[in-house]
Design a protein around this nucleic acid. Structure first.
Lengths: 224, 224
DNA sequence: CAACTGCCTTACGCATCCCGGACGGTGGAG
DNA sequence: CTCCACCGTCCGGGATGCGTAAGGCAGTTG
């Protein structure tokens, strides 16, 4: 489990990190909103712990960005006790849990584990590959962070391709997985759907054709 | 915050009560198991502090009853130091925390506050998502802070959708959860209710249709 | 009993999706 | 160069699924 801690007070942040380390939870620290957003874009985290009151973009703003990114990373908000009335707005921004300072490290760990479990069990994993993010639970697809509306068949086909993690999938296999049993083997439905998919997902094209074999998600490794 | 103290030694009980009062925590005292159960049935408490060794029904028995009542009131157990080996059994009976005598008042307060926070988290009576606030207990719904009157069915459906936290819920699943067993599988009651819900909740529409799949709360991640 | 509300079935309009057919483009083999 | 296999894309009709209006039935209230 890997966590991003966004907290502007170094002493507190490091104390939390050290505590989490004992629980085998890896944690990175961002001291302000900008570095938080940068770290989020570079690394992949399972959870985010956000102090609301930080330099640069506020904790609220960072939370909004995380939610909008569609990554589905759960957020635990930290706030000073005297601002507890902000609780509603915190949840409204997409925070999944809330903790008021001062808090016990033990409790933080419990909540983080709870959030991680909830994410892991309740939701099918969000798959990411080559700038493509596919959320089976919400049935949403993002290309480079932008939402892409897909039809049912298009989503089904893309789901199979993404599940293959860049491996080649034959037209027959696509037919078998994304269509029901009684599909005409010599249909060109696959070609049409793939064509539509490419168009919807925009350029650069992310679905590569392997002549005579099938299709695969282009992860860029094959490009010169 | 209101706490029930179950402790047969009057001096200790009152010392604790006075100490808690300074922390703005209201406390009632029960000297034995029977009066504890009576007070629990009459008043509503946020927490219970139980001495294991009391006259009448034991602390263990009282704890069992509290858990069985389904009220979800967290329990902090007190025990003499020489019986610390009972710790496991105490937790087994549903105690949420544990303290051995003698203890410092300061520590008791800290633990009570922690328990109260955890309770607030463990069963959030109010769910919030995307500007929607839903109170299952009072059967009330607010959209952006404004009250919205809903019928029973409408509320039930919205409850399921909100519980899914933005995930897609199929019409079948809605039927299964918001209607009783004998629902016609090919009814369009769901569509009618969703339609009415959308109208009641006003614009912008907060329930999105995922064609061929189901419905979900629109958290806004799909726009922008 | 009358009026009302909540709830569901029937029915219909409408948008969208899906796929067969046809056509054009491309690259390799002869 | 010509042929051919394979692939991408446009078009149009049929099918599907969704939204909503209208009416009836049951339970509740005054």
């Amino acid at each position: 489990m890997r966590v991003l801690i966004v907290e502007d007070e170094p002493y507190l942040a490091e104390a939390v990190r050290d505590g989490l380390r004992l629980e085998a939870i890896a944690a990175d620290i961002a001291g302000d909103g900008d570095s938080a957003l940068e770290l989020l874009s570079v690394n992949s985290y399972d959870l985010a712990v956000l102090d609301r009151d930080i330099p640069g973009p506020s904790g609220d703003e960072v939370a909004r960005r995380i939610v909008a990114s569609g990554s589905g990373i759960p957020i635990l908000m930290l706030t000073a006790a005297d601002r507890i009335d902000d609780k509603a707005s915190g949840f409204g921004l997409g925070a999944d849990d809330y903790l008021t300072k001062p808090f016990e490290l033990r409790e933080l760990v419990l909540r983080l584990r709870a959030l991680d479990r909830r994410r892991a069990y309740a939701r099918p994993p969000v798959r990411e590959i080559a700038g493509l993010r596919l959320d089976p639970f919400r049935r949403e697809v993002f290309r480079d962070g932008r939402y892409v509306a897909l039809t049912r068949k298009q989503f089904a086909v893309l789901e199979v391709l993404v599940a293959a993690e860049g491996g080649v999938v034959s037209a027959e296999e696509l037919l078998e997985r994304a269509w029901d049993e009684n599909a005409d083997p010599l249909t060109n439905a696959v070609r049409i759907t793939v064509s539509a998919l490419r168009k919807r997902l925009g350029e650069p094209w992310i679905i590569a054709t392997v002549p005579g074999v099938g299709y695969r998600i282009d992860t860029g490794t094959a490009r010169a």
